[in-house]
Amino acid sequence: MKALVAVKRVVDANVKVRVKPDNSGVDLTNVKMSINPFCEIAVEEAVRLKEKGTVSEIVVVSIGPKEAQEQIRSSMALGADRGILVEADDSQLGALEVAKILKGVVDAEQPQLILLGKQAIDDDSNQVGQMLGALLGAGQGTFASEVKVEGDKVQVTREIDGGLQTVELVLPAIITTDLRLNEPRYAALPNIMKARKKPLDTKSPADYGVSPATKLKTVKVEAPAERKAGVQVKSVDELVDKLKNEAKVI
């Protein structure tokens, strides 16, 4: 079966971002960009399913600026077969628009499994997979920590607030990955070289009949309130005293 994996180019997880002085957004000039960690887990899962013989072809799609090609190439270096870049201005795209473009890609590619990360670490929305499920009328296994394909169904173990839940979905289905699903491999140099030769198509949102114009307007972006500087205590006695008499929390 064919698997489609959606990946997003985001600021690297280890970067501490700064808000622009004019409050228009976060300053991303000269900041290291990477593949969103949850998306990387989605790619890894697809590759593992291919290694098991369940999946025969992995198509990676990214929606974003031209530079998102790098994230598609990285996914190919991990084992994806082919890439599609839908070139669009990120700032105009909300989760709904992304889901609509992905629906267009799914309609064209007809994958049985659609893998996404559970959330992007920049907008922290946690919406696209669920929205895509709605648009396709397909089942959704969100926050997956285990995926088992059995015939024309897939069993997904999900991380929920109280523990774990397992659901069974009819294929084609959407899976969004949680951190514990797997540990992504590193791309080996020969695979990085090979990935350069793999096919990568470039499309636009218009090719899928979507106009990228979100109805959510970001009015301003501010830095969170600073916490006042704390103090180092030298002993347990001092700590207990501070908690009892200064902070009055115990």
Partner: peptide, 11 residues
Amino acid sequence: IYAGNAIATVE
């Protein structure tokens, strides 16, 4: 947004 490192006002 950004793991709580920025607060967005959204309309």
